[in-house]
Design a protein around this nucleic acid. Structure first.
Lengths: 232, 232
DNA sequence: CGCGAACTTGAAGCCCGTCAACTGGCGTGG
DNA sequence: CCACGCCAGTTGACGGGCTTCAAGTTCGCG
């Protein structure tokens, strides 16, 4: 029994002090490309992302990969109903997380404040997945990419006047597998946005949204709908 | 403040006895086409589906509808992170639910057993949404329909020898909006499955899966992946 | 500077959305 | 009892967007 996948401990990573359970809220480092857990692993608990970025992915029987989601700072990752993970969880860049034991989610006795926060995080996750399903369900490729960039800007963007700049740590393939597209289509969509003057691609992993308003319009249709209260 | 949308109370519906909160675990009836809640409503709590079927849907700004999911018997519906619903929830057929106050999910003090069950339900929901995203992300139309029928068979099917029969209470449009397709494509896909001898369409709302093995194969790629444990 | 990986761009084919016509089931009313 | 009409579903033809395959280009690192 270990709190986190061994590969995450390599080199400068800090080992969790198991004696502190169930209140081991020490942040610890996870190196880029280290896994927090693999599909098939018994759940090591939940992780609150402090810095960096995580990629949650599944591989289908026939070898296709699907990126279920990304974990940004502030997100909680590692939800898992049956104690065994179905997805891999890998740090995209050097990151730091805080571990929360599963019991903190399931019981409010140990740490009521953390419990509340984890339940809320789970509910947010459900809603985000719904948003994402809507995106995958009926949006064009460039709309999906636009929505993705918008979201990224909200989460990790640094506003600078009218524009918003941010790093794009993941590869084009990660984005494609997340948005249900191919690398080529993602690339073409980025080109479309760039040629339209909506974004600037400083380098492969640095994006500047020059016209947030226009990219928001593309990310439409917005799932957040106005109250529409017309009972019989 | 009401426990559930007024329109759900019409006629033979049973009003919730608010004095029983927070342990009002009386099942109550919801008529076909009655709403449990609307987008914009303050959350009336969680609902455990006992019988029938619910449809959760959102309408986008530009008028497109998206079916976020269905609530089968045994499911818990009504999760909502910020106290306000973004989706409509409507009974597809006459149904019965048990209401659980939101506090039962957020705190384990009132009813520890129900609390555990609701947390698990939320985690299952996350996983199901992930499965669904994979389906929307990279499956062909007839694969999506096949996966949908497979799931339906698992949830409400009556096995009869080798085959599995079940009602299809929702419309083709519901299915289409759920699978990110059009009515026409759903119809074509069903025809493909029928002509291949995989399913039989008794009538518009009665399906018999004649060859569960073949429909499972189509519903591939299966998201549940075998453990693949190869740390450095 | 040179190499490989990642990304971009181009061309062709296919799946699915759109538009349109047709079919079938069901309730109404003559 | 049958005719009609409406609605849901099915089927067909066409066009467009995305995937696939292939080649070219850029980026990053030794």
């Amino acid at each position: 029994m270990y709190a986190c996948h061994p590969s995450a401990y390599r080199d400068e990573s800090i080992r969790i002090d198991e004696s502190r359970k169930p209140f081991s809220s020490l942040p610890f480092q996870v190196m880029a490309e280290a896994h927090l857990y693999y599909a098939g692993d018994e759940s090591p608990g939940l992780f609150e992302v402090r810095t960096g970025l995580f990629r949650l992915s599944r591989v289908t029987r026939n070898g296709r990969r699907y990126v279920v989601g990304f974990g940004y700072p502030g997100d909680v990752i590692g939800f898992c109903p049956d104690g065994v993970h179905l997805s891999d969880c890998e740090a995209v860049v050097d990151s730091a997380v805080i571990r929360h034991p599963t019991e903190t989610l399931t019981s409010c006795r140990a740490d009521p404040r953390a419990h509340q926060a984890l339940v809320r995080a789970a509910l947010r996750e459900i809603q985000e997945m719904q948003d994402h399903c809507m995106l995958l369900g009926h949006n064009l490729a460039h709309e999906r990419v636009a929505a993705f960039l918008t979201r990224l800007g909200e989460r990790i963007g640094q506003p600078k006047g009218d524009s918003v700049a941010f790093d794009l740590p993941m590869s084009r393939l990660d984005i494609a597998d997340f948005l249900g597209l191919t690398v080529e289509t993602v690339s073409r969509s980025l080109t479309i946005l760039r040629k339209a003057g909506i974004i600037e691609i400083r380098n492969l992993h640095r994006i500047v949204v020059l016209q947030p308003v226009r990219i928001d319009a593309l990310a439409e249709p917005d799932p957040r709908v106005a109250p529409r209260h017309t009972p019989a």
